[in-house]
Design a protein around this nucleic acid. Sequence first.
RNA 1: GCUCGGAUGGUGGAACUGGUAGACACGCAGGACUUAAAAUCCUGUUCGCCCUAAAGCGAGUGCGGGUUCGAUUCCCGCUCCGAGUACCA
Length: 944
Amino acid sequence: MDYQFRDIEKRWQKFWAENQTFKVDNSSAKPKYYVLDMFPYPSGAGLHVGHPLGYIASDIFARYKRLKGFNVLHPMGYDSFGLPAEQYAIQTGQHPAITTETNINRYREQLDNLGFSFDWSREVRTSDPDYYKWTQWIFMQLFNSWYNLESNKAESIDELIKIFENSGTAGLKAVCDDDVCIFSAEEWKELPDTEKQTELLKYRLTYLRESTVNWCPALGTVLANDEVKDGYSERGGYPVEQKKMMQWSMRITAYADRLLQGLDGIDWPDPLKEMQRNWIGKSVGALVRFGLTPGSYPGSLSFGEGRGEAFIEVFTTRVDTIYGATFLVIAPEHEYVAGLTTPEQETEILNYIDQTKKKTELDRMADTKTVSGAFTGSYARHPITNEPIPIWIADYVLAGYGTGAVMAVPSGDQRDWLFATKFGLPIVAISDAQTNLDKEADSTKEGHYINSGIINGLKYKEATTTLITKLEELGAGKAKVNFRLRDAIFGRQRYWGEPVPVYFKDGLPYLIDREDLPLVLPEVDKYLPTESGEPPLGRADNWKYKDDLEYELSTMPGWAGSSWYWYRYMASQEDRKQDTFAPAEAISYWKDVDLYIGGSEHATGHLLYSRFWNKFLKDLGYVVEEEPFKKLINQGMIQGRSNFVYRIIDEEGRGTNKFVSNGLKSQYTTSALHVDVNIVMNEILDLEKFKAFRPEFANAEFILENGKYICGVEVEKMSKSKFNVVSPDDIIERFGADTLRMYEMFLGPLEQSKPWNTNGIEGVFKFLRKFWKLFHDDEFNFNVSDEEPSKAEYKALHKIIRKVEEDIERFSFNTSVSSFMICVNELTDLKCNKRKILQDLVIVLAPYAPHITEELWSLLGNAPGKLSVAAYPQFNPEYLVENEFSYPVSVNGKTRMNLNISLSLSQAEVEEIIHANEDLKKYLEGKNIKKIIFVKGKIINLVV
RNA sequence: GCUCGGAUGGUGGAACUGGUAGACACGCAGGACUUAAAAUCCUGUUCGCCCUAAAGCGAGUGCGGGUUCGAUUCCCGCUCCGAGUACCA
């Protein structure tokens, strides 16, 4: 029989499922290897051909590692909470759980058709109560923890209470809110319980606090920073505004430094690490206080009382430029603005604030060129020179970063320079290396300081340390590290997410008892906010803890369930009966993910949150590794490739039913129409299928070139409306899963983005048929010989054994597909049907094309299903040893001819051959050979 | 603006530490088999020059320069495309 891929693939997929071929144990004499894919959100559209790219790569890797003798954990699951199912529920009333279930079944079918070697017994679904029980449990651990900067890790809140009881806040180094109280042990003990709880909330790693959030009215929920793109929601593209709300947050900032440092030790793509570094945004600098002498401003600022004079605190990364600070700028939202504004300036300031408020986030971003601001009328004192410094407000200073106030150094900072120039403020040079100050600012760190009091004549490094010491002496400043990273908002006013396991008493949040987990999502009549604007959970009947206390109505964000899921996979079905998210033995066996494959769009979301939760769980001793994902590969995005037909437009500008081929379209007035890519092959339109594509095309006429209708091409996002979605199901139906797997790899480097193009898939299909043919005679009878292979046959085999090893280890899957083709072409030419060659070749190819190789493996008489645990053949370099090499001989770097020369010869002997060679003479034309470059096994180059 | 990628035939791409540029495949052209088509197989296919072929010559990895016996690969300067990020003090 010819290669019957449909029958073979179905049969082996069934065999693997029935025999649980890829089920893995949590213990083994073999070394462990954990290969993980980013689990999908099961969307209603199903998988398109771009989705499996990463899964195919990871499956090849997992299968290869099994052959190499590893105990491989390779699981799959679903990130099944999310907005689309809920939006669908709002429109149709269908419960999101039902939609999700349907979509998951469809995904599963599609994944099964690709022949992946997942251990499905370990599947997880984040929306499953047995799973989100543990998401809620982790939330509870975070609530019960604080971050101790002394030990530099998270500790139990009970420890903090003990500290308060023993010594109050004295000497405490903790990550906490800015407004924590200072108290002694005695004062603490005197506090009523509600106040104790209020205070503790300021330390908890997940906490409730009034904060400015990204509110999306259209979605009716808050969004995290990474879910907002250019002022619009990432999902749906709705406008997002800033709003103050009581919100659950995660104190990820406590881990900022560890998240930054951890990047150095992990094998991730550099651009991705760089994105995380930028997102964390560490800047090293100083906090400096500019004093406000009582009477120098009109308002009565109460903030300084009892603690010395009032001051404005600024953050700067260039404390060395402090002598160049000629004014201060504070954000329009800064809390002192009202207190600092003099009566004369009041109108101007109020106008300016008004103006700023009207600007949307987007305007503010787009319009970075216009300089605007207003003078408060008040002055602060320079901390070192005591000179009076005017205080301005301007919207280029952001309330949310640093202290919301900056010292403006117009000679060293371009924005400050523009501001000073516009408003006529002084620009003072501070370095002898500064040039062109009348044209622009110069932020150089070179040169020696001038006009700079105690640092005159010094260079950058000494100046900085000198100043910080001085400021500390004066009590006017200190070194400070600032991060751009904000705490992560954790609540969503949505239905389809994990309920927060919290109830309220006297307005304060308390955790439910652990025994009451999971807190199961209640039924609601509608998936919309309540009439009073409460989240959908407010609609649930009797949604009260112990029938009495109000539950939290927000649910958790999409990233909650995905921030720890790789640990749940470590728990087998048996393990999941235990009362733990994963047994300690399983965690200490699997430890971490050795290889993680997924898209780079998760750089500042999932991949950062996961690292945060992992570090937290490590602090508490539940997991063993500081970093969860040792090696990470970003697969490229597969874009769509749209095809177009060109409809001719008549004189009146109406579309006709006549279509012109791409090459001739310039001779007519046309409009381009998307045409379904599935009826186009190699840009040639299938005319009959086109006529059937839509009723109005049934009588379409065509103007052809060379008898064919050639379509236009453009690269766009893959989407239904562009008719460029290619489904893996169709490809598998036509060519089989093995062909699809190999073709997706053959398309190009894994990490590179590329448009999907079905042109060329036949090359891979032909390859598999040729491979099948090696094992069969012309009548397709299985025909394998036990004869001893020739040297050439061994050579072909061992070349591929080594090549595939090298390629897989460096994730270069496309090149090994080429090499397989070369190998099969060679063996076909050699008419090789020797078992000793073919059996090993079956093993080497198995990770790429698992179905056809399983079939041939059992046809060769081996135990069915044991291919996946066969041993990868041992590479023997002896078969590749050559004693002659065809040297390219070049003259002045230009290759002229090839010469077969024994590899054992020395340079002197080779030179002799060169000098004696007649054919070379014509290239020399009497010129003298100055030098002969000879690289053994590579090249001979004559310099003349 | 800043950061990070990338640019090689008609197309996808290969060339791993500087050593024969264009592997492998698609497409295209021609041929064999066939009544015909499909399938399969064979030959050619970077561009230019030479009537054609063989042979040969010249150019050639976005552009300009450099290092080197030798550069797709290393260095400097630019152009274009893509991604991320943005008054971050």
